[in-house]
Amino acid sequence: MPVRMRAQSQERTWEWLRESRRAWPSAKRVLDLTLGSVLLIIAAPLLAAGALALAAQRKPGGVLTRSPRIGLGGRLFVLRSLRTRRLRLDLLSRLPHVVRGDLSLVGPVPLAPDDERAWAPGADSDTPKTFAATTARHWRQELKPGLTGLAQVRSRSVMPWDEPALLDQHYAEHHWVGLDLAILARAVHTPLRRAIRGLIRRGEAHLSDTDHRRSGYSAAE
């Protein structure tokens, strides 16, 4: 086989391999699809009950909020959430976006199109075509926004390097499945710990309000 034909054959082989790799789901996508589906099945009865309760109240605007957000590659999608923050139902109601692929379980905060943080300096965010493609791509557009993220789990920190935009950028530059699992564990652990503390304090209050003195007790004794 001539050298030129052999080189062309090898190039076609490498191109086929590159295309095949693009078609394979990433480990992050497998985690999103698997864990996101499991969480959605578990949360479905709670979400249904919340939706029915909101529907019974007949609030203006309906059961869901709808807001445009910027996703992977600058693509716009409509983010739907339940109109309540009780039991974090608003967050859980976004799980269908994770399964569908609009969101990831872990990622940067999903931003609105008019948010300056979503665009690199020099990008024209006023022109509709730049939502799908822009010469000044921003690092936020290189990965999906998340249901939760590094900025969210460190939201109570007052350290200067824990500023949300810096945390999101750090995640974008260093993300991998192990970091995603650590963030998810922290996201679950923090509200669970607060709930347990609330129950303990409530129990202590009840104990302190109870009179444990025996019948007939007098302070003069």
Results as ranks from 00 to 15, higher is better:
Q10R: 14
S37Q: 15
R66W: 01
L150Q: 08
A44E: 15
A165E: 11
P164R: 02
P145D: 01
P164D: 04
L79T: 02
V188Y: 06
R94F: 04
S155A: 06
E173W: 04
D209S: 13
G36M: 09
S26V: 03
R21I: 01
K129N: 11
G146N: 03
G36K: 05
W176N: 13
D180L: 11
R88Y: 09
D211T: 10
D124F: 01
H189Y: 08
L192S: 12
R117W: 00
P110C: 15
R154S: 04
L31A: 13
T210S: 11
A53M: 11
G73F: 03
S125W: 14
M5L: 10
L92W: 15
G146Q: 05
W161C: 06
G203V: 14
A44C: 15
V99K: 10
Q8N: 05
P25K: 13
S20A: 15
E163Y: 12
E142Y: 10
Q10C: 05
L199R: 15
S37I: 15
A136N: 07
T34V: 10
A123W: 00
G61A: 03
T130R: 15
A120P: 00
P68Y: 04
A187W: 07
A49Y: 07
E221A: 09
P160R: 12
G73N: 06
S104F: 04
R85F: 14
R66A: 06
R94E: 08
L192M: 13
D211S: 09
R4V: 03
A195H: 14
A136D: 08
R66P: 01
L92V: 06
I70W: 04
A136V: 00
P96F: 12
P164H: 03
L167V: 00
E221M: 05
R213V: 08
A172G: 09
Q169P: 09
T65P: 08
V78D: 11
T65D: 14
P110H: 04
P2M: 09
V106P: 03
E173K: 12
M159W: 08
G50T: 10
E221K: 06
K129L: 13
A195N: 10
Q8D: 02
